[in-house]
């Protein structure tokens, strides 16, 4: 396996009086898709937000491309070519789809070719290009959220539950998109509750519980080992399969 693009070493995060992350160790290999699993409230979202600097890590180190980023501000972290798709999608509902995409393209202009590729992945975005993003359906908003993250090439994508509440057909479109990105050597850290989705795209996997990583390894190993799955996450995963 190639070297790590992102490494979390003993990261702790406090939100107000609550101690949420309690020493998270996580490695995201360069060019691979790492999946973060875990039951509701395990701390997956908090982990992504801590990486983005939206929560401050109170202890521990976050290394991206061999640089420590845990003390940097969110914009500075984003400018290191990290894109974030939050759990609530973070769509600017008053802006059109076009304007949403325009803001995501920090260079100031949208690359035509790349846009056509994205339209290929998510056709509704082309149809509703000039509509207010607030009028999009839930699935279309999710497509827009991912499209925003990939409108320019980024080194790392942090995607939080892109399949939450989506119809199977849209989930398939999402899987297809992630597979293409993977082929383009984009590194992805994906939070996912849907195990079939996780298995379809993941290379490595880490399982969280109560603010700590309780298992990490190759996806293939976990996928083949029903007993291990049972042991780790019987609660959450089976229900989703």
């Amino acid at each position: 396996m190639s070297d790590a693009l992102l490494t979390l070493k003993g990261v702790h995060t406090h939100i107000g009086p609550y101690h949420i992350l309690q020493g998270v160790d996580l490695v995201v290999p360069r060019g691979g898709v790492a999946v973060l699993l875990g039951r509701n409230g395990a701390g997956k979202t908090t982990t992504l937000r801590t990486i983005m600097g939206l929560w401050q890590a109170s202890q521990g180190a976050i290394l991206f491309d061999n640089a420590e980023i845990q003390k940097e501000t969110t914009p500075a972290i984003a400018q290191r070519e990290i894109a974030f798709v939050p759990e609530d999608m973070g769509i600017f509902t008053d802006l059109t789809v076009h304007e949403n995409m325009l803001l995501a393209a920090r260079s100031g202009a949208i690359d035509k070719e790349r846009l056509n590729w994205i339209f290929g992945l998510f056709p509704p975005l082309k149809t509703f290009w000039q509509s207010a993003a607030g009028n999009l359906s839930g699935g279309q908003k999710q497509m827009l959220a991912v499209a925003r993250a990939i409108i320019e090439p980024r080194k790392l994508l942090l995607i939080d539950e892109p399949t939450k509440g989506l119809a199977p057909a849209i989930i398939n479109a999402m899987i297809a998109a992630l597979r293409e990105l993977k082929e383009m050597q984009t590194t992805i850290l994906l939070v996912e509750q849907n195990f079939s989705m996780a298995r379809a795209v993941g290379d490595t996997v880490a399982v969280m519980d109560d603010g700590q990583i309780v298992y990490s390894g190759e996806m293939a190993e976990l996928a083949d080992d029903a007993e291990l799955q049972e042991k780790l996450m019987g609660l959450s995963l089976e229900a989703h399969q």
Binding site: M52, L54, T73, T74, P75, A78, Q79, F84, P86, G90, F92, L103, A104, R106, R148
Partner: peptide
């Protein structure tokens, strides 16, 4: 927050 996460 999202504006910041986009790098501004």
């Amino acid at each position: 927050e999202m504006v910041e996460a986009l790098g501004y």
